[in-house]
């Protein structure tokens, strides 16, 4: 292009005469930057990051430890609570058992008295009944003997007694 010949190359990027200059300064800049970065900047940032990571790790460990302690305290408290509860339960149980025992003893005693009394009553009832029966049979014998005497029937007392006895049995 005629025009570009007049006002230098149209694209400065393609002006080969400046290449050596650019490349030279680029390499200088890169080397300087590389040494600044690799010798000063990056180790510094890396150490700061490592410090922070260490601090965070330590803090987390400490927090974990505190958490563990809190957990242990909670466990101890729970244990104590459970113990107290068991103790109370035990006392209640013992009192209940004692009461039950004395109750049982009194009931047994009462039962024994009742049964003794009822046995005595029964015995007396039986005595009275036997008396009554024998009295009834005596009276019957006498009455029978008297009636037989009125009708002039001779009968010995023995057969009268057995006949009365049979009669009474049949009634009973």
């Amino acid at each position: 292009m005629a025009e570009s010949a007049a006002s230098g190359p149209g694209m400065p990027q393609l002006d080969v005469t400046t290449f050596s200059n650019q490349i030279f300064w680029l390499i200088v800049a890169l080397i300087v930057l590389y040494f600044i970065m690799s010798r000063v900047a990056l180790p510094r940032v890396a150490s700061v990051l490592a410090d922070r990571r260490g601090a965070i790790t330590a803090d987390i460990a400490a927090a974990e430890e505190y958490k563990q302690k809190a957990h242990e305290a909670e466990e101890a408290f729970k244990q104590a609570e459970a113990d107290a509860r068991a103790e109370a339960q035990r006392i209640v149980e013992a009192a209940k058992a004692e009461m039950q025992e004395s109750l049982n003893a009194q009931i047994a005693k009462a039962d024994a008295e009742i049964s003794a009394k009822s046995a005595e009553s029964e015995k007396r009832i039986r005595e009275i009944t036997a008396n009554a029966v024998s009295m009834v049979s005596d009276v019957s014998n006498d009455v029978t003997a008297d009636i037989l005497a009125v009708f002039d029937v001779k009968a010995d007392s023995k057969s009268v007694a057995s006949a009365v006895k049979d009669q009474l049995k049949g009634d009973a």
């Binding site: 800049a29 300087v32 930057l33 600044i36 970065m37 000063v40 900047a41 990056l42 510094r44 940032v45 150490s47 700061v48 410090d51 922070r52 601090a55």
Partner: peptide, 18 residues
């Protein structure tokens, strides 16, 4: 460019704060 990069990475990080 080198100066700006250095400014950020060296001067900016100079505190080394936690």
């Amino acid at each position: 460019t080198v100066l700006a990069a250095t400014l950020l990475m060296v001067y900016g990080a100079r505190g080394r704060a936690l």
